[in-house]
Protein backbone atom coordinates (compact mmCIF):
# COMPACT_ATOMS: atom_id res chain seq x y z
CA UNK A 1 0.00 0.00 0.00
CA UNK A 2 2.48 2.53 1.26
CA UNK A 3 5.14 1.50 -1.19
CA UNK A 4 2.76 1.78 -4.16
CA UNK A 5 1.88 5.28 -3.05
CA UNK A 6 5.58 6.04 -2.68
CA UNK A 7 6.28 4.86 -6.20
CA UNK A 8 3.47 7.01 -7.54
CA UNK A 9 4.81 10.06 -5.69
CA UNK A 10 8.32 9.32 -6.86
CA UNK A 11 7.12 9.19 -10.47
CA UNK A 12 5.24 12.47 -10.07
CA UNK A 13 8.30 14.11 -8.61
CA UNK A 14 10.48 12.86 -11.42
CA UNK A 15 8.01 14.07 -14.01
CA UNK A 16 7.77 17.49 -12.30
CA UNK A 17 11.51 17.87 -12.25
CA UNK A 18 11.90 16.93 -15.91
CA UNK A 19 9.10 19.26 -16.92
CA UNK A 20 10.61 22.14 -14.96
CA UNK A 21 14.05 21.61 -16.47
CA UNK A 22 12.70 21.35 -20.00
CA UNK A 23 10.60 24.48 -19.59
CA UNK A 24 13.42 26.51 -18.05
CA UNK A 25 15.93 25.47 -20.68
CA UNK A 26 13.37 26.19 -23.41
CA UNK A 27 12.59 29.66 -22.11
CA UNK A 28 16.22 30.61 -21.65
CA UNK A 29 17.01 29.26 -25.10
CA UNK A 30 14.19 31.26 -26.62
CA UNK A 31 15.31 34.43 -24.86
CA UNK A 32 18.88 33.94 -26.01
CA UNK A 33 17.71 33.28 -29.54
CA UNK A 34 15.65 36.47 -29.56
CA UNK A 35 18.12 38.66 -27.74
CA UNK A 36 21.46 37.41 -28.95
CA UNK A 37 20.84 35.35 -32.02
CA UNK A 38 18.27 37.36 -33.93
CA UNK A 39 18.93 40.91 -32.76
CA UNK A 40 22.28 40.65 -31.04
CA UNK A 41 22.38 41.73 -27.39
CA UNK A 42 24.81 44.61 -27.25
CA UNK A 43 27.25 43.89 -24.47
CA UNK A 44 29.16 47.04 -25.22
CA UNK A 45 26.01 49.07 -24.56
CA UNK A 46 25.40 47.26 -21.27
CA UNK A 47 29.01 47.76 -20.23
CA UNK A 48 28.83 51.50 -20.86
CA UNK A 49 25.27 52.26 -19.69
CA UNK A 50 24.88 50.34 -16.44
CA UNK A 51 25.75 53.26 -14.10
CA UNK A 52 22.63 55.13 -15.28
CA UNK A 53 20.53 52.12 -14.38
CA UNK A 54 22.19 51.84 -11.04
CA UNK A 55 21.20 55.42 -10.31
CA UNK A 56 17.61 54.61 -11.27
CA UNK A 57 17.68 51.54 -9.08
CA UNK A 58 18.91 53.67 -6.21
CA UNK A 59 15.99 56.11 -6.63
CA UNK A 60 13.56 53.20 -6.71
CA UNK A 61 15.14 51.60 -3.66
CA UNK A 62 15.29 54.70 -1.60
CA UNK A 63 11.84 56.08 -2.43
CA UNK A 64 10.34 52.66 -1.66
CA UNK A 65 12.28 52.23 1.56
CA UNK A 66 11.57 55.70 2.94
CA UNK A 67 7.87 55.39 2.10
CA UNK A 68 7.79 51.90 3.54
CA UNK A 69 9.38 52.86 6.86
CA UNK A 70 7.28 55.97 7.40
CA UNK A 71 4.24 54.00 6.24
CA UNK A 72 5.07 51.37 8.81
CA UNK A 73 4.76 53.96 11.57
CA UNK A 74 1.40 55.12 10.22
CA UNK A 75 0.23 51.59 9.60
CA UNK A 76 1.22 50.44 13.06
CA UNK A 77 -0.65 53.22 14.83
CA UNK A 78 -3.78 52.98 12.70
CA UNK A 79 -3.70 49.20 12.73
CA UNK A 80 -3.48 49.22 16.50
CA UNK A 81 -6.28 51.75 16.86
CA UNK A 82 -8.53 49.73 14.59
CA UNK A 83 -7.65 46.45 16.24
CA UNK A 84 -8.65 47.64 19.71
CA UNK A 85 -12.10 46.56 20.69
CA UNK A 86 -14.57 49.21 21.70
CA UNK A 87 -13.08 50.73 24.80
CA UNK A 88 -14.84 51.06 28.10
CA UNK A 89 -16.37 54.43 28.67
CA UNK A 90 -15.27 55.66 32.05
CA UNK A 91 -17.71 57.86 33.93
CA UNK A 92 -17.39 61.63 34.03
CA UNK A 93 -16.63 64.33 31.50
CA UNK A 94 -13.03 63.24 31.08
CA UNK A 95 -14.08 59.66 30.39
CA UNK A 96 -16.53 60.86 27.77
CA UNK A 97 -13.89 63.04 26.13
CA UNK A 98 -11.34 60.22 25.96
CA UNK A 99 -13.97 57.92 24.56
CA UNK A 100 -14.96 60.53 21.98
CA UNK A 101 -11.39 61.11 20.83
CA UNK A 102 -10.71 57.39 20.52
CA UNK A 103 -13.93 56.85 18.62
CA UNK A 104 -13.20 59.69 16.22
CA UNK A 105 -9.64 58.49 15.58
CA UNK A 106 -10.86 54.98 14.88
CA UNK A 107 -13.50 56.12 12.41
CA UNK A 108 -10.94 58.35 10.68
CA UNK A 109 -8.66 55.31 10.43
CA UNK A 110 -11.52 53.38 8.83
CA UNK A 111 -12.03 56.15 6.28
CA UNK A 112 -8.33 56.38 5.47
CA UNK A 113 -7.98 52.64 4.90
CA UNK A 114 -11.14 52.54 2.80
CA UNK A 115 -9.90 55.43 0.63
CA UNK A 116 -6.43 53.92 0.14
CA UNK A 117 -7.58 50.41 -0.59
CA UNK A 118 -10.51 51.45 -2.70
CA UNK A 119 -8.64 53.55 -5.28
CA UNK A 120 -5.82 52.79 -7.72
CA UNK A 121 -2.31 53.75 -6.63
CA UNK A 122 -1.91 55.39 -10.02
CA UNK A 123 -4.76 57.77 -9.23
CA UNK A 124 -3.38 58.46 -5.77
CA UNK A 125 0.01 59.41 -7.23
CA UNK A 126 -1.45 61.70 -9.86
CA UNK A 127 -3.85 63.21 -7.35
CA UNK A 128 -1.20 64.05 -4.75
CA UNK A 129 1.11 65.35 -7.44
CA UNK A 130 -1.47 67.68 -8.96
CA UNK A 131 -2.48 69.03 -5.56
CA UNK A 132 1.14 69.76 -4.65
CA UNK A 133 1.90 71.28 -8.04
CA UNK A 134 -0.99 73.73 -7.65
CA UNK A 135 -0.29 74.50 -3.99
CA UNK A 136 3.49 74.89 -4.18
CA UNK A 137 4.04 75.98 -7.76
CA UNK A 138 7.13 77.95 -6.76
CA UNK A 139 9.16 74.84 -5.85
CA UNK A 140 11.50 73.04 -8.18
CA UNK A 141 9.38 70.61 -10.25
CA UNK A 142 11.80 67.73 -9.76
CA UNK A 143 11.77 68.12 -6.01
CA UNK A 144 8.03 68.54 -6.06
CA UNK A 145 7.64 65.32 -8.02
CA UNK A 146 9.82 63.44 -5.56
CA UNK A 147 7.87 64.78 -2.58
CA UNK A 148 4.56 63.99 -4.24
CA UNK A 149 5.76 60.49 -5.02
CA UNK A 150 6.96 59.93 -1.47
CA UNK A 151 3.71 61.24 0.00
CA UNK A 152 1.55 59.10 -2.26
CA UNK A 153 3.56 55.92 -1.73
CA UNK A 154 3.73 56.49 2.03
CA UNK A 155 0.01 57.07 2.31
CA UNK A 156 -0.66 54.02 0.20
CA UNK A 157 1.60 51.60 2.02
CA UNK A 158 0.48 53.07 5.36
CA UNK A 159 -3.08 52.01 4.58
CA UNK A 160 -2.09 48.52 3.52
CA UNK A 161 0.33 48.03 6.40
CA UNK A 162 -2.30 49.13 8.89
CA UNK A 163 -4.44 46.24 7.71
CA UNK A 164 -1.49 43.88 8.14
CA UNK A 165 -0.88 45.11 11.68
CA UNK A 166 -4.57 45.02 12.54
CA UNK A 167 -4.81 41.41 11.42
CA UNK A 168 -1.62 40.52 13.29
CA UNK A 169 -2.78 42.06 16.54
CA UNK A 170 -6.25 40.56 16.27
CA UNK A 171 -4.82 37.12 15.57
CA UNK A 172 -3.23 37.02 19.02
CA UNK A 173 -5.75 35.22 21.16
CA UNK A 174 -7.76 37.32 23.62
CA UNK A 175 -6.89 34.79 26.32
CA UNK A 176 -3.31 36.04 26.13
CA UNK A 177 -4.34 39.56 27.07
CA UNK A 178 -6.66 38.26 29.76
CA UNK A 179 -3.86 36.21 31.30
CA UNK A 180 -1.54 39.22 31.25
CA UNK A 181 -4.20 41.43 32.81
CA UNK A 182 -4.83 38.79 35.46
CA UNK A 183 -1.25 39.02 36.72
CA UNK A 184 -1.46 42.78 36.93
CA UNK A 185 -0.34 44.07 33.54
CA UNK A 186 -1.77 47.37 32.40
CA UNK A 187 -3.28 47.48 28.92
CA UNK A 188 -0.12 49.05 27.56
CA UNK A 189 2.20 46.54 29.22
CA UNK A 190 0.07 43.62 28.03
CA UNK A 191 0.38 45.04 24.52
CA UNK A 192 4.10 45.63 24.81
CA UNK A 193 5.15 42.36 26.43
CA UNK A 194 2.54 39.86 25.32
CA UNK A 195 0.61 40.90 22.21
CA UNK A 196 3.26 42.70 20.18
CA UNK A 197 6.01 40.08 20.45
CA UNK A 198 3.54 37.61 19.00
CA UNK A 199 1.83 39.92 16.52
CA UNK A 200 5.13 41.17 15.10
CA UNK A 201 6.30 37.64 14.43
CA UNK A 202 3.03 36.94 12.64
CA UNK A 203 3.21 40.01 10.38
CA UNK A 204 6.76 39.51 9.10
CA UNK A 205 5.75 37.55 5.97
CA UNK A 206 2.90 39.88 4.89
CA UNK A 207 5.08 42.91 5.61
CA UNK A 208 7.77 41.51 3.34
CA UNK A 209 5.18 40.99 0.65
CA UNK A 210 4.13 44.58 1.08
CA UNK A 211 7.70 45.84 0.67
CA UNK A 212 8.23 43.88 -2.50
CA UNK A 213 4.83 44.91 -3.84
CA UNK A 214 5.59 48.54 -3.06
CA UNK A 215 8.96 48.35 -4.77
CA UNK A 216 7.34 47.10 -7.93
CA UNK A 217 4.46 49.56 -7.67
CA UNK A 218 6.94 52.43 -7.33
CA UNK A 219 7.49 52.11 -11.07
CA UNK A 220 4.19 53.99 -11.42
CA UNK A 221 6.02 57.08 -10.17
CA UNK A 222 7.35 57.61 -13.67
CA UNK A 223 3.98 59.12 -14.54
CA UNK A 224 4.80 62.24 -12.49
CA UNK A 225 8.32 62.49 -13.85
CA UNK A 226 10.36 60.72 -11.21
CA UNK A 227 13.31 59.12 -12.92
CA UNK A 228 13.34 55.74 -11.25
CA UNK A 229 14.46 52.39 -12.58
CA UNK A 230 11.57 51.68 -14.95
CA UNK A 231 11.67 55.22 -16.34
CA UNK A 232 15.40 54.85 -17.06
CA UNK A 233 14.67 51.62 -18.86
CA UNK A 234 11.89 53.23 -20.86
CA UNK A 235 14.01 56.22 -21.85
CA UNK A 236 17.01 54.17 -22.78
CA UNK A 237 14.83 51.78 -24.73
CA UNK A 238 13.42 54.58 -26.81
CA UNK A 239 16.23 57.09 -27.04
CA UNK A 240 19.09 54.63 -27.41
CA UNK A 241 17.05 52.13 -29.38
CA UNK A 242 17.97 49.31 -27.01
CA UNK A 243 14.69 47.84 -25.70
CA UNK A 244 16.01 44.33 -25.02
CA UNK A 245 19.16 45.42 -23.29
CA UNK A 246 17.50 48.07 -21.18
CA UNK A 247 14.61 45.95 -19.95
CA UNK A 248 16.93 43.03 -19.34
CA UNK A 249 18.99 45.27 -17.07
CA UNK A 250 15.86 46.68 -15.41
CA UNK A 251 14.52 43.20 -14.74
CA UNK A 252 17.86 42.09 -13.38
CA UNK A 253 18.14 45.08 -11.06
CA UNK A 254 14.62 44.61 -9.64
CA UNK A 255 15.46 41.00 -8.92
CA UNK A 256 18.74 42.07 -7.40
CA UNK A 257 16.78 44.00 -4.78
CA UNK A 258 13.78 41.74 -4.22
CA UNK A 259 15.51 38.37 -4.00
CA UNK A 260 18.05 39.33 -1.32
CA UNK A 261 15.35 41.13 0.65
CA UNK A 262 13.22 37.96 0.69
CA UNK A 263 16.22 35.88 1.67
CA UNK A 264 17.24 38.17 4.52
CA UNK A 265 13.70 38.28 5.89
CA UNK A 266 13.42 34.52 5.60
CA UNK A 267 16.53 34.27 7.73
CA UNK A 268 15.22 36.68 10.35
CA UNK A 269 11.91 34.83 10.43
CA UNK A 270 13.69 31.56 11.04
CA UNK A 271 15.69 33.06 13.87
CA UNK A 272 12.58 34.44 15.58
CA UNK A 273 10.43 31.37 15.07
CA UNK A 274 8.71 30.03 18.17
CA UNK A 275 6.86 26.71 18.34
CA UNK A 276 3.11 27.21 18.22
CA UNK A 277 3.19 30.65 16.59
CA UNK A 278 2.53 31.21 12.91
CA UNK A 279 3.67 28.89 10.15
CA UNK A 280 5.10 25.69 11.49
CA UNK A 281 7.34 22.95 10.40
CA UNK A 282 7.18 19.80 12.47
CA UNK A 283 7.36 20.87 16.11
CA UNK A 284 10.92 20.96 17.34
CA UNK A 285 11.79 18.52 20.06
CA UNK A 286 14.25 20.51 22.05
CA UNK A 287 13.18 19.31 25.46
Amino acid sequence: MGSLEDVRRQRTRTFDTIAAVVLTVGIIGLLLEVLVGRYGLSWTYIASAWPIYLRGAWVTFYVTTVAYIVGMGIGFIIGWARAARVSVRKPGAQGAAVFGVKYTLRRMGDGYVAAIRGTPLFVQIVFVSSVLVIRFSSLDPNQLALIAGLVALTANTGGYQSEIFRAGIQTVHTGQVEAARAIGFSRWKAMRHVVLPQALRLVIPPLTNEYIGLLKASSLLLVIGIVELTEIGRREAFFQGKPFESFAIVTGLYLLITVPVSKIVEYIERRLRVPGLGSQQAPTTRV
Partner: peptide, 16 residues
Amino acid sequence: RQQVGMVFQSFNLFTH
Protein backbone atom coordinates in the same frame (compact mmCIF):
# COMPACT_ATOMS: atom_id res chain seq x y z
CA ARG B 1 -5.25 41.77 40.18
CA GLN B 2 -1.80 41.24 41.65
CA GLN B 3 -3.43 40.28 44.94
CA VAL B 4 -5.38 37.41 43.39
CA GLY B 5 -3.91 34.81 41.06
CA MET B 6 -6.06 33.32 38.33
CA VAL B 7 -5.84 30.06 36.42
CA PHE B 8 -7.87 29.66 33.25
CA GLN B 9 -9.62 26.76 31.64
CA SER B 10 -7.56 27.21 28.47
CA PHE B 11 -4.22 27.80 30.28
CA ASN B 12 -3.44 30.96 28.28
CA LEU B 13 0.29 30.61 28.63
CA PHE B 14 2.20 33.25 26.70
CA THR B 15 2.89 31.43 23.44
CA HIS B 16 6.13 33.22 22.61
